[in-house]
Design a protein around this nucleic acid. Structure first.
Lengths: 221, 221
DNA sequence: CTTAAATGTAGACACTTGTATGCATGCCGT
DNA sequence: ACGGCATGCATACAAGTGTCTACATTTAAG
């Protein structure tokens, strides 16, 4: 097997049974997370990282945009059910911390996917932003639904709740980046994130009440 | 003046009095905002965008990291005093909306700086993240100080307030990206952002009260 | 006015890049 | 067993890259 003229960087020890496509996706995650983001990866570099010929790329992906789509598609794909399970079953006052712990656990298991996914949420790739936004919107809608089931609050606008859920989900995912960068601060991050969630939810009740009072100031007794 | 062999892309109409360094910084912002981020820019492409010879880059910057530092340094540099002016002088209930409006106005005047700055807040460049974090931390500390001046709340931990201020500043800056992408949604974004700020601040009072009650449940009468 | 510094440029070099063409091998379906 | 498909590879091409050396022009200081 002829050796490339470039200095032979040791190929990553990818599991033998992984197909080329899988290897390319995981190589892309590694490179994007530690370097310049998805778009900073050349496909020759990608091939090297995957242990494949650069041309093999075109056997699995039409172009780099197709690779980006595949990478982003995986982000946060299976996190929803686990979050809902906690929200619907755990003691209510523990839900913020427990759901944050879960997201942190999953991030720890898939650090590159989280780093890349969260960064691209506001990144330069239109299609990636759209796909990731849909993901977060879905998670937020599920959260709002669960909150209404467990803690029905009369007068709380469902749209408002969904709105705040969207901000909460975004916030928690951003915190995974802080956590991955400083694993020793996990406990503090969980505490602060839970506080954030509590503050936002309790505050929304206060704000809603104030708005109702502003609209009909005489109606209380 | 010899013409480059590459197809002659029209040079941007930069003000004639701008020096080379300034042109390079602004070219970097334009390219980073519309393409692949700071690290996706080659310095030949940068030179073309700035209307300069690629080698001129080395007359102003030691390397690309030095350029990145210069770009990031400018982000949000003068926004603090204007925000404080509003927080300390406007009617309290209007502060969230007015400060959000101000940030949106400044973002509209400097869209590329905001796009690049906010993205790099969680980007791949360690030094950029650090510099931007310091910027946001400073803005958050000023906000917390101003809130304590205008709305002193007995028992509200100052550390907690700073923490939430940090989340608020981050959230507002993220919303500038939404605004720049959809200028027609400005009013809705301002309303929602103001609601977020109110909810977080009011909620923190509720949460603090609940924590005090949990610690000494008998002390109230 | 002169000199030094600042700033811009041309040309060259070695290297990398994305992508095309064609070949090779293994697997799967008939 | 055979043909088609999937998958991997080698080679080549044109273009772009970062950075070097040396020269030129403008500006500023003495």
């Amino acid at each position: 097997m002829p050796v490339a003229k470039a200095k032979p960087a040791p190929k990553p020890a990818a599991p033998l049974e992984l197909g080329g496509r899988r290897r390319l996706i995981e190589a892309a995650l590694r490179l994007a997370a530690e370097k310049r983001g998805l778009q900073g990866i050349g496909l020759r570099e990608l091939g090297r990282e995957a242990g494949l010929n650069p041309n093999t790329f075109y056997r699995h992906f039409r172009d780099l945009d197709a690779l980006y789509a595949a990478v982003v598609e995986e982000f946060g794909a299976e996190i929803g059910p686990a979050l809902r399970n906690i929200r619907l079953n755990a003691p209510i006052e523990q839900v913020p911390a427990l759901t944050t712990e879960l997201v942190f656990d999953i991030a720890k298991q898939n650090p590159e996917a989280f780093i890349v996914g969260v960064r691209e949420l506001h990144g330069a790739l239109d299609s990636a932003r759209e796909a990731l936004r849909r993901r977060l919107t879905t998670l937020a809608q599920e959260m709002a639904d669960d909150v209404l089931v467990r803690s029905p609050v009369p007068g709380l606008d469902e749209g408002l709740l969904r709105e705040l859920a969207r901000s909460i989900v975004e916030h928690v995912f951003l915190r995974t980046l802080d956590y991955l960068e400083n694993p020793r601060q996990r406990a503090a991050l969980v505490r602060r994130t839970a506080l954030f969630i509590d503050s936002l939810l309790y505050g929304s009740v206060v704000v809603a009440a104030r708005e109702r009072a502003a609209r009909r100031p005489i109606q209380q007794g």
